[in-house]
Design a protein around this nucleic acid. Structure first.
Length: 259
DNA sequence: ATGACTTGGTTACCAAGA
């Protein structure tokens, strides 16, 4: 079974790329983030024609997440139970589903904007609530993983130049401590192998030739419990999908399971 | 030059992303 996660940065703009990538990669279960569409605008029918069911949690101009599956889709949970609101809004940043013997969460962790900003506090609170929400599944016997855009680079080697990020979000001790808490709940980082260079990045800024210069970050993560990690036969970041006109600024992260 | 893309919405500009 092939499972993947991809921050697609507008499913509306990239539906043709999405369908092409699903067919080329042969992905069975895909966690999507940043749909940037209303639920009614989600391309349910085109995905169904391609053989995929979808669990969608979306709304408004930002955020929006989904789980696509061609191996069954059950036990859908929309939203983060006990999760914090921002500006009085419970944003659509997580959706969970069980697909072909694996349970997955598709998450889009808040960006945080600046250290000390209310959005940064929101980010830390959101990660704390995520830990509580997944604790039972993480400790369970069923293969389980949280996949998505975590907006945190777990280690200094997960950014192209640590000095550039001094004082910025995504690399702070507080954010990394929140990830450590998540791992302490029974999850571990499924590290993708690079297809080029020494480290696999998953995001490159659109600006200033970020991708050609490989000024990237690894912030799209797969946090899996032991029953899940035992099944992993391969994992990689598909940087090919970051190439060319009309690419998302994130590349898909792919995990193969012996299942 | 406190910005260099890209997106969707309050559109012939803005916020947000990371």
């Amino acid at each position: 079974m092939r499972v993947a996660t991809w921050n697609i940065n507008s499913v509306t703009v990239r539906i043709d790329r999405l369908l092409g990538w699903l067919e080329r990669s042969g992905t069975d279960v895909l966690c999507l983030q940043e749909l940037k569409c209303e639920p009614a605008a989600f391309p349910t029918e085109r995905l169904r024609e391609a053989g995929y069911e979808a669990a969608v949690h979306a709304g408004g101009r930002w955020n929006g997440v989904a789980v696509l599956s061609r191996v069954g889709l059950d036990e859908v949970v929309r939203g983060l139970p006990g999760g914090p609101e921002y500006d009085g809004v419970a944003e659509p940043r997580s959706v969970a589903a069980s697909c072909g013997g694996v349970r997955v969460w598709s998450v889009y962790v808040p960006n945080g904007r600046e250290v000390g900003h209310p959005h940064f506090t929101y980010k830390l609170g959101w990660l704390g609530a995520l830990r509580e929400a997944v604790a039972e599944d993480a400790a369970g016997a069923r293969p389980f993983a949280v996949l998505g855009d975590f907006n945190v680079a777990p280690e200094d080697v997960d950014v192209w130049d640590r000095s550039v990020f001094e004082g910025s979000t995504h690399v702070t001790g507080e954010e990394r401590a929140a990830l450590a808490e998540l791992r302490a709940a029974g999850l571990s980082d499924v590290l993708p192998r690079p297809l080029k260079y020494e480290r696999a990045f998953t995001y490159w800024d659109y600006r200033q030739l970020g991708f050609p210069k490989n000024r990237g970050m690894r912030i799209d993560l797969v946090y899996a419990n032991e029953p899940f990690t035992k099944l992993v036969t391969d994992a990689y970041a598909d940087r090919e999908e970051r190439k060319g006109k009309g690419a998302s600024d994130h590349a898909p992260v792919v995990v193969d399971l012996d299942l």
